[in-house]
């Protein structure tokens, strides 16, 4: 359940951004979570609800954008199919992860 420690870091960062802009309220927080990030979106949402209660994010909703894992060949750029061997059939190069490992705070909607 490291989702709690991730929410802890998230709330701290959101509060910093809000304080810097003298926000009066935080309404929405949008995060991007990759399929291979090791973070469970449902657990993250639960942790958010538990954690935000008393803090500056008390009224803020959490929007989780799930990002699927995408692999490609670093040489020819061909996409590697889901579940396939992570090596380009043509170039014999190890695949590169294009996206899917992100744990990103993307956007905050605040009242100023």
């Amino acid at each position: 359940m490291h989702e709690y420690s991730i929410v802890g870091a998230l709330v701290e960062r959101v509060a910093e951004e809000a304080a810097r802009r003298r926000a009066t309220a935080i309404m929405n927080v949008r995060v991007r979570i990759g399929e291979l990030a090791g973070v469970d979106p449902a657990l993250l949402a639960t942790a958010w609800d538990a954690f935000r209660a008393a803090g500056p994010c008390a009224d803020a909703s959490l929007e989780i954008v799930a990002v699927g894992a995408t692999w490609e060949c670093p040489r020819c750029g061909d996409a590697i199919a889901r579940g396939a061997l992570l090596r380009c059939a043509r170039c014999d190069e190890p695949a590169r992860l294009v996206c899917g490992d992100e744990i990103i705070l993307e956007r905050i909607e605040m009242e100023i």
Binding site: E17, T24, I103, I108, E109, M110, I112
Partner: peptide, 12 residues
């Protein structure tokens, strides 16, 4: 008050 979107794009 105004509702303002702030793009952060930072690793949590």
């Amino acid at each position: 008050t105004k509702l303002v979107p702030v793009d952060v794009h930072a690793r949590i």
